[in-house]
Every structure is written in C-alpha cells, then in structure tokens.
Design a protein around this nucleic acid. Structure first.
Length: 363
DNA sequence: AAGCCGGGGGG
DNA sequence: CCCCCAGGCTT
C-alpha cells in the first residue's frame, strides 16, 4: 500500500530531470559555509549535530570555535565534559554535546578514530539518528542514503503534494522511502544538500520564492497554487509557565553562590544561580526556604530584574533578586554541587542563557 | 505515539 | 503575540 502510494507519486515527475535541475542549482548557488570546505567525516558530523534544530547563522561561530578547540576525534575525546559544555554554551539542547562526546569516544576506542561508514554502525552511535546517519553517509562518504529533516519534508510535501502530517514519525519514514527512490546515485551529496538548501533559501515555510525555484516545473503544489497549505503539521501545544525567584547571593568577598544542575533533565550539568520555585512557596518565605535547602541564612536586599525565557515546552518567568549572607551554619552539610566564585571565574562555568544575562548585568 | 529537550529570528 | 525551525532520546 505504501510502496504503491510512493510509486504512484513518483510516476508524476521526470526523475532524471529533477535530479539534474536540483543538483545543478545547488552546485551553482550553494552558500559558502565553513563545513563545506572539507569532506572530513568528523567535521561533517559536528556540523550536523549543531545544525539539529538550529539555524545556520547561529551555528557558524560555534562550529568555528569548536573545530578550532577540538580539531580531531582524539581532541574531543580527551576533553572534560565541562569544557565541551562550555564550548556548547548558548547553543541549547545540551544533550547533543554530551551524546556527541560519548559517541566520539566510542569512535576513538572502537574504530581507531575513523567515523564508521555503514548505516548500522553510524546509527548506533549516541545522538546519531536516521537524519544524521544519512547526512554523514551522503556528504562525507558519497553513499546514497536519505537524510530527511523538516526542510526536506517541506520541499517534498510540496513537490509531490503530500498531505500527510509531517509531525508523525511514520510520515518521516514515508519520506525516507521517497528519497531512497529519488536520490541520485551519482551525486547523493549534492542531491541531499540541494533539497535542504532549497528548503532554506527558496522553499521556505511562509513565503516560498517559487518564481526563483529551480524545480518549479516539477512542483505539484505550485501547479495547483497550494504551496502555502503545505506541509500539513499539527499545531504546537501551549507552553506551561513556571515562575521562579532567582537568588543572586553575594558573600563578603566579591563571591557569588552558584550551583550545578542535576545530571539529567532540563539544562543538565549546567551551572546557575539558585532558583526558588514560586509555585511551591510564598515570596516572603524565600529566606526560610533557602535556609532549609542550603543551610545558609540570607537577607533579601533588592530586586534586580525580571525576565522571561522561552524553552521548547515551558516558559520560565524569572524574578531576579539580590541577597546577602547573614550567617552560615557550619554544622549543616554544604551541598556538594554548590560553589562560591567571582564574576570573572564564572566565565569558566557553562550556564543557561538567562543566567548568562544576569552575569552580564553584574559586570 | 507522546513527552522531553534550547534558543534565536521572523512576521 | 504568534510562528518557524538542518532531530534524537526516553518512556
């Protein structure tokens, strides 16, 4: 049934002509991007992980710094996790960085530092899913494998007028079967990158430049004036708002109290100023709450700022206040994951963006 | 299949 | 304010 559907759709375009039009356009019009200067599988890999859910312009400076700091798998393998997180600071989805280092260590120990070139070995590495597997195979190794991301699904849903909900995992698999049939065996790298580049430059979500499109004559959505109706996608759910009071606590020697977040979940292993959950406690009872949690008596000095930070699924509403230490109870065990550092030394600790902003204000 | 996981930019 | 993302892991 599915194969019949794909076959039916594919019959409606001239495959060879489509490949030629797409590849020729890509090779003439592609952007000059740092990861396109080499075919080094390690560098392609780094770029593909960074590009997950992240725009090209954001990635470029991170990629340059990262490759500079960790030029080879061996370099990344021997770094500390905090170094890697610091290099990733601000990029988001920090599990990407942890998984990447874990996988690179496996490549060094199991494959002599050579990135594997089979879908099975590549796809079993941590953080390397179906998309990244196909991207590395095709771009670094010239192997015809589908690399289907949101861009590719948007482009192909328009070209073939596919009215399936692209948010469903089963539909991504449908698109992979499509690309397996459609991909150029001679030049899978330019074919895959061409689809993605087209999605980034021409076949954009809200205002596609169909009049400039190199594959316009193949596009069924354009022919029927439906390009703005595709792809079909379910609406995102509402984000839950979570209020916190952020405590910027000074000691008597220009030091500030920061803590390491848990090693799982949101912003794992990053550092932050302590945060009191306002949904659990009353604002007036913050010093009492803090004494219970940290064993340190504090006094609220003044409000510094309020800020809102939007994540993929929640929203932090932050009330930032300054506090001072009244008295420290030496009998109470200090939390192992807290430390007192100067503003200057804080630069060595990876912190979430809203906390980076607080640091910047304190300077 | 659904939830979790960041951050920035555009309209 | 809304929307858009060059995905993968966990449950």
């Amino acid at each position: 049934m599915k194969t019949e559907y794909i076959h039916q759709k594919l019959k409606q375009i001239d495959k060879k002509q489509f490949q030629h039009d797409l590849i020729t356009w890509f090779e003439n019009e592609q952007r000059d991007l740092p990861w396109r200067k080499s075919q080094d599988p390690y560098k392609i890999w780094i770029s593909e992980i960074m590009l997950q859910q992240t725009k090209v312009d954001t990635v470029i400076p991170y990629y340059e710094r990262f490759i500079n700091k960790f030029p080879t798998p061996a370099d990344l393998s021997s770094a500390t996790e905090q170094e890697v997180l610091k290099a990733w600071e601000g990029l988001g989805y920090y599990s990407r960085a942890r998984n990447l280092q874990h996988a690179v260590r496996e490549v060094v120990s199991e494959y002599g530092g050579i990135v594997p070139n089979t879908p099975e070995r590549l796809g079993s590495l941590k953080g390397v899913g179906p998309y990244t597997t196909g991207a590395i195979l095709s771009i670094a190794y010239d192997i015809p494998a589908p690399a289907v991301d949101g861009n590719v699904m948007r482009v192909l849903s328009r070209i073939f007028l596919i009215e399936e909900n692209i948010a469903k995992p089963s539909v991504r698999s449908l698109f992979e079967h499509f690309v397996e049939k459609l991909i150029s065996k001679q030049n899978p790298s330019s074919f895959n990158q061409g689809l993605m580049e087209l999605g980034a430059l021409i076949c954009t979500p809200n205002s596609p430049a169909c009049l400039l499109c190199p594959v316009q004559q193949h596009c069924q959505a354009f022919a029927e004036g439906k390009e703005l109706e595709l792809p079909i996608k379910e609406k995102a759910k509402k984000k839950k708002i979570i209020p916190y009071t952020v405590l910027v606590i000074r000691d008597d020697h220009e030091g500030f109290l920061i803590e390491k977040r848990p090693d799982k979940g949101l912003l794992a292993n990053l550092w932050q100023f302590p945060m009191a959950p306002l949904s659990d406690i009353d604002k007036k009872s913050i010093p009492h709450w803090f004494y219970g949690e940290y064993g340190i008596k504090i006094k609220i000095e003044k409000q510094i700022d309020t800020m809102k930070h939007v994540f993929s699924h929640i929203i932090w509403e932050l009330d930032v206040i300054e506090a001072s230490i009244i008295e420290e109870d030496a009998n109470k065990m200090e939390r192992p994951d807290t430390t007192v550092v100067s503003i200057q030394d804080m630069a060595n600790f990876p912190m979430p963006v809203p906390h980076q902003k607080i640091v910047k204000q304190l300077q």
